[in-house]
């Protein structure tokens, strides 16, 4: 990684470093090398935009992953069963 920071970043390397870059996990020198590359490479800039878009779209599946509509309140019978288990545990001699 340190060696890489002294070099120029090329497109294919960027596609593997992008997550570490977005996570702030790269050494400063490497971030600078990437920023230099991005300033000169519209395709890699677009790749970054695509990845950000991907993350944003993934955030939208919240609530839809179990189908429409989003999860209903806890069914009463399930809640009652859980509460019985909770009460039994706390009132049992071993609790």
């Amino acid at each position: 990684m340190r060696l890489l920071s002294r070099q120029n970043i090329v497109c294919q390397q960027w596609t593997e470093l992008i997550t570490d870059y977005l996570e702030g996990a790269l050494p400063r020198g490497l971030v600078r090398a990437i920023d230099r590359h991005l300033a000169a490479c519209p395709h890699c800039t677009e790749y970054l935009a695509q990845m950000r878009r991907t993350i944003a779209i993934t955030g939208h599946i919240d609530g839809q992953i179990k189908g429409e509509p989003p999860p209903a309140p806890v069914p009463a019978d399930m809640m009652d069963a859980l509460q019985r288990a909770f009460d039994d545990f706390h009132h049992s001699p071993d609790a």
């Binding site: 294919q12 890699c44 677009e46």
Partner: peptide, 26 residues
């Protein structure tokens, strides 16, 4: 394990430049 298929790049393995660049989703 590649994030992007290597056949999208030209150049040395692992150090290629885009041959088929990403589209503008924006």
């Amino acid at each position: 394990n590649a994030a992007v298929s290597p056949d999208r790049f030209v150049g040395p393995p692992g150090k290629g430049a885009w041959a088929q660049p990403p589209a503008r989703w924006s």
